[in-house]
């Protein structure tokens, strides 16, 4: 029974793979093909067109995947230490380390070139980018090397990759993953304080709309009008509306 369902679903996966190549991509802010997985602010792998970029703790590892049957590793780009996350935006890779945000230009996808870096307080730091603003959370924690016990959301103007600057810093409790979407909203997982919903119509002045305090929020992903939240006890899915999130389902997490 299980085997039959699994077989059918896997067949669907491959059928969908073919079908979806005809469907228009909806990842407007991601310079990626519509037939590619899309991760959140905590990702350490990302695919941009025909290249896979992975980060280890010190470097970018670019791999040419234009021939999926024969991936070709390219020259590794050394950045520094404490590298954690990678987020693609336009022709750029935004790379979060535990002390800085690095921006690499990938106009030549085989050779990422650093345009700038934005030094910030030391801590774990997922990043997302929307409309020329980067949103970075910095939190303390066991593995975060954060000596200052700093927990903030930083908003950085990145319109000119050679001249980035901080426009706003908002103190939070213990922020982790974050995502933009759902009609100009920014969602920030603030650990025990829950999921925070900011209106970012004016990115330089985010307004905290709603706090969903019933969740211990770790990571959030938005695809179209679907918001997926990893909480402490389940993976919750919501439909975005103009006002608030409508809970659709919960896949429980075993404790």
């Amino acid at each position: 029974m299980f085997q039959t369902i699994k077989t059918n679903l896997l067949s669907c996966l491959f059928l969908l793979t073919f079908l979806s190549s005809c469907i228009e991509s909806n990842f407007n802010d991601f310079n990626v093909g519509g037939n590619t997985s899309s991760g959140g602010s905590l990702a350490s792998f990302t695919i941009v067109n025909n290249h896979l970029y992975a980060v280890n703790s010190t470097s970018i590892i670019p791999i040419d995947i234009s021939d999926l049957a024969k991936p070709e590793p390219l020259e590794i780009v050394t950045i520094g230490t404490g590298i954690e996350t990678i987020f693609p935006y336009k022709d750029q890779l935004f790379i979060g380390s535990n002390s800085a945000l690095f921006i690499y230009d990938i106009s030549d996808p085989e050779v990422p070139v650093r345009t700038t870096f934005f030094q910030h307080a030391t801590g774990c730091d997922p990043v997302v980018v929307k409309d020329d603003y980067a949103y970075v959370t910095i939190r303390d924690g066991v593995s975060c090397n954060n000596f200052f016990r700093l927990n903030v959301l930083d908003i950085i103007n990145v319109a000119d990759p050679f001249n980035t600057f901080l426009v706003r810093e908002i103190p939070l409790t213990n922020p982790r993953g974050l995502a933009t979407g759902c009609n100009d909203k920014l969602f920030v997982c603030d650990g025990p304080s829950g999921l925070l919903q900011f209106d970012i119509t004016d990115p330089e002045d985010p307004v905290l709309d709603t706090t969903y305090a019933q969740f211990t929020a770790n990571d959030v992903l938005i695809r179209d009008d679907l918001l997926i939240l990893t909480g402490a006890d389940g993976i919750y899915q919501f439909r975005c509306t103009d006002e608030e999130l409508l809970l659709l389902s919960n896949v429980p997490i075993s404790l």
Binding site: L13, L16, T17, S20, N35, T36, S37, S38, G39, G40, L42, A43, D219, L221, R223, I228, T230, I235, V251, P252, I253, S254, L255
Partner: peptide, 18 residues
């Protein structure tokens, strides 16, 4: 199997990957 101590989440097509 049950999800215990999840890491990252992402989507691919109509799939959710944990």
């Amino acid at each position: 199997k049950d999800i215990v101590n999840p890491g990252k989440i992402f989507t691919y097509q109509n799939f959710l990957i944990v």
